[in-house]
């Protein structure tokens, strides 16, 4: 049983890697105190999902879905939809990252620290 599971993991090594990276990003986003590291964690998490999606669209020994030399056969190309989803997702995560960074800059200018716990304590005491 265990051996079977491990052999599956080795076959789908892209997905295995994606889930591990997702876990790292997830815990960093949730638990790390440093705001910049939180943002890095968020990006790791999203990129892991894009790796997962992209690997799902890939089909062994086929080419990128760009028509060259007039080959229009569907069997020649990989699935282009996950690539489209990944592109959309990247746009979303870039804009969210921008907002997070802007918020971080504002918080740093006000509290002069990047530690979210410290910031929360200062603001709770009614400092600023």
């Amino acid at each position: 049983m265990l051996k079977e599971i491990f052999s599956h993991l080795m076959t789908n090594y892209y997905e295995t890697a994606a889930v591990i990276i997702f876990g790292i990003g997830f815990t960093t986003l949730l638990l790390n105190k440093n705001l910049i590291k939180k943002i890095i964690g968020f990006n790791l998490m999203d990129n892991a999902i894009y790796l997962f999606l992209a690997s799902k669209g890939y089909i062994e020994s086929r080419k990128a879905p760009i028509v060259v030399n007039g080959v229009r056969d569907m069997e020649a190309y990989i699935n282009p939809i996950p690539a489209g989803l990944v592109l959309t997702g990247i746009v979303v995560s870039v804009s969210v990252t921008a907002i997070m960074l802007a918020l971080t800059v504002k918080l740093y200018r006000r509290y002069h620290t990047l530690d979210i716990d410290e910031i929360a304590i200062i603001s709770k005491k009614g400092g600023i």
Binding site: L29, L30, L35, K38, V96, I99, M100, L103, T104, K106, L107, R110, Y111, I116, I119, A120, I122, S123, G127, I128
Partner: peptide
């Protein structure tokens, strides 16, 4: 634009 709102926006975002 005050500290409380910025902190809670950050928490909300996370």
């Amino acid at each position: 634009d005050n500290g409380h709102c910025l902190v809670s926006a950050m928490k909300y975002m996370i």
